[in-house]
Amino acid sequence: MQKRFSTFAVHAVLAGYTALALAPIILVIMNSFKAKRAIFLSPLVPPNPVNFDLIGYHKVFADGAIGTYYMNSLTVTVGTIFFTLLFGGMAGWALSEYKFRGNTMLGLYLAIGIMVPIRLGSVAIISLISGLNMINTLTALICVYVAQNLPLAVFILGEFVNQIPKDLREAARCDGLSEYNIFFHIVLPLLRPAMATVAVFTMIPVWNDLWFPLLLAPTGGKQTITLGVQQFLGQYITDWNAVLAALSTAIVPVLLFYILFSRQLIRGLTSGAVK
């Protein structure tokens, strides 16, 4: 009886937290399907035949630029994930596999990046990027995001590399693989669950970020979707239909990515390698 109650209590707390976390998102999605009057008069009422209106979505899809912004966001996010995983995996592998002078110092140096918020360096980053003539390019965003996410990626992936049995790497060496081939054919496939974790951690802040797109690529058709939505927010008039519709559609890709990666998260791949 006691046990049943505590199980119930745990679920109640979790359900409550879920409701709290999901409420704003549900509110956004709900209202994106409603007419403007209905959004303001009864924001908590779900869409029904009376207040249903797709005007927001019409506006968003009619606006040619929004498509570009989506592509920009997608490019930046995918690019960031790719390079973060590649360099993070390589650095994690090198730091845990090779013993060289300054190994520990280098590891600590990289770990400092986890603690220092990159936004503190915004001014320096702007002058660097503008000095390189890379303002309003997606490359600039990818570079900054990769730098931002690498420390944690190196840390997590390094830990996972440590868990790959040493015998496997040595067996591969006996099999005549070069160090690069060991990394790409043995280590990388075994790191997939860890990489999915890192990808999820990397993807969400990057997709949602407003700060660096605003600073580094604010115009010239290089805006990301979060920045692109801002065009519907005016000083005097805000097109709430369009804003809510754009935000709702912005959730979709990141959700798809998450579903994709979370399948990998669950899969334990190393079982059966060694006893």
């Binding site: 015998d167 040595e170 067996a171 006996c174 693989l177 791949l269 390698a273 060694v274 006893k275």
Partner: peptide, 20 residues
């Protein structure tokens, strides 16, 4: 010489089969 060039093959205690 690196292991691969020595024309040896090793069988490990843990078998070290590639799990994937």
């Amino acid at each position: 010489l690196p292991p691969a060039k020595r024309e040896i093959a090793m069988v490990f205690q843990s078998y070290a089969l590639y799990p994937h």
